[in-house]
Design a protein around this nucleic acid. Structure first.
Lengths: 200, 200
DNA sequence: TGCGGTCCATACTCTGGCGTATGGATACGG
DNA sequence: CCGTATCCATACGCCAGAGTATGGACCGCA
């Protein structure tokens, strides 16, 4: 562990190796899951040894929490990009749908987090991120004219469909849905999920 | 490992300890995931030792595959109950929705299987089960009057919403949705997912 | 030139789970 | 009453990964 840096890390050198550990950890999680995040295999993957790791981090939990914090911040920034704009709700949601449909590291990490149950801190991160996204969807649906209760239900339906598709894609089931097929499906989703509810 | 039983297992005695191992394995998987399925902890949980395990099974893979086969057979039987009936498609689907909404061991195991990536055999089981359920939904939607492509999309939407809800519930996020709230949501789903598509 | 600080390699110990070997206990048939 | 088969406990060896201790390479600076 870095003993309370007495001197600033010499801004000239890169020396951002802690960052690479965090990034590598997220990629590893996305690929193999949280439980599979081990120090020595990751070190081998990076071409270094544990000596490096234990200089930058206290232990495995430290790396895990540190990496997830980084991920959470990134996700919040991502979401904010869709909250700030003052465009109409329908347009914003459509844009959100289309952007979210594309697989990326962020979503893979989310899938891993949702899949395995890590410790309390991991669950807390997962809860915060999920709640933020959920609230975003609920607000969007209300802006679309849904009644509060219906908006909540619709947000839940939309979000669970997102989460479920993530899992299925991750396992290679339900065809990767690339290109035209994906667009086609997204259009279907927009047709079903973004239309005002029929009076029941 | 049982050396090629020279004599039938004396039908008088229960001696079905292999079954208890399988059941316990499924419960353990439902609770802690596939990766966490270990022999010694499970033996401690059962109040026995590894000696018992290695008499009934060759190794960990043996138990895992054996338990999952049992689970798969159970799931197929469950699904068949909704395929056999000659009731109208809409009624059948509604019944399916309501029944599926209740959490149970089967669904927890499915969630675990969907979450972590085990070996090839596990993935094969997962694929078969998913495909069967998916086909069931697709056929039901076609019977409801959906065009083939739309039925496939709708089946995907429905199924991913199911899978996603499973995961969220498993993590204790999105409120367990018990009782009235659950019924309420299921009604919403039926309203959104079981109505014929509006002409787009 | 030597000194402190940064970053990593090497060489341990320790823990937990896997798989094996072997013997003990119980029940049943002859 | 003995032999055999079933089922499980005990006691090992083995291995991978966690965490620790220590030294060494390299750099900036006085």
């Amino acid at each position: 562990m870095p003993r309370t840096a007495l001197r600033a890390p010499a801004a000239s050198r890169p020396a951002q190796s802690a960052e690479s550990w965090r990034r590598a950890a997220l990629e590893w999680i996305a690929a193999h899951g949280i439980a599979a995040l081990a120090i020595e295999p990751l070190a081998r993957h990076l071409g270094v040894t544990k000596g490096s790791f234990y200089w930058h981090f206290r232990d495995r939990r430290d790396l895990l929490h540190s990496a997830l914090s980084m991920w959470e911040a990134h996700d919040e920034a991502q979401l904010a990009a869709y909250t700030d704009g003052s465009e109409p709700a329908a347009v914003r949601l459509e844009r959100f749908f289309r952007a979210t449909a594309k697989q990326s590291l962020t979503h893979q990490v989310y899938a891993a987090l949702l899949a395995e149950q890590g410790d309390a801190a991991c669950l807390a991160v997962l809860k915060r991120v999920t709640q933020k996204r959920f609230d975003f969807l609920g607000a969007a649906y209300r802006a679309l004219g849904f009644a509060p209760a219906a908006a909540a239900h619709q947000a839940r339906l939309t979000y669970t469909a997102y989460a479920g598709l993530l899992q299925l894609q991750k396992q290679g089931i339900a065809a990767p849905l690339a290109g035209a097929a994906l667009d086609n499906y997204v259009e279907h989703l927009i047709g079903v999920l973004l239309k005002p509810l029929p009076e029941v």
